[in-house]
Simulated assay, not measured.
Amino acid sequence: MQTDDAALVEQYLEHVRVGKRLAQRTVELYALDLHKLQQHAAEAGVGLARVQNAHVRRWVAQMHGAGRSGRGIALILSGWRGFYAWLGRNGRVASNPVQDVRAPRSPRPLPKALGVDDAMQLAEHQDAQADPALEARDAAIVELLYGCGLRVGELVGLDVTASAAARGWVDLQAAEAHVLGKGSKRRTVPIGRKAAQALQRWLALRPQLAGEAPALFTGRGGKRLSAQAIWLRLRQRSLRAGLATPVHPHMLRHSFASHVLQSSGDLRAVQELLGHANIATTQVYTRLDFQHLAAAYDAAHPRAKTKRASD
Rank of each mutant, 00 (worst) to 15 (best):
A213C: 03
W202D: 00
W202Q: 01
R224Q: 00
F217S: 06
G222K: 11
H248Y: 11
L232Q: 15
R206Y: 02
S238I: 07
P249K: 01
T245L: 15
L205S: 07
H248Q: 11
W231G: 08
G242P: 05
F217Q: 03
T245N: 15
G221A: 00
S226N: 09
P207Y: 00
S238F: 06
P214C: 00
E212L: 13
G221I: 02
A229F: 05
L199G: 05
R237M: 07
H248E: 05
R201K: 13
R206Q: 05
Q228A: 15
A210Y: 03
Q200E: 13
L216I: 13
A210N: 00
G219S: 12
Q228W: 15
S238E: 06
A241Y: 12
R233F: 04
L203W: 01
R233A: 13
L216C: 10
A215Y: 00
L205C: 06
P249V: 07
Q200R: 15
G222P: 00
S226R: 06
R237L: 04
R235D: 12
P249E: 09
G219D: 04
I230C: 04
F217E: 04
Q200C: 14
K223N: 04
A196M: 13
L243R: 05
Q208P: 01
K194T: 13
R193W: 14
P207Q: 00
Q208L: 10
F217W: 05
G242L: 06
I230F: 06
W202N: 03
S226P: 07
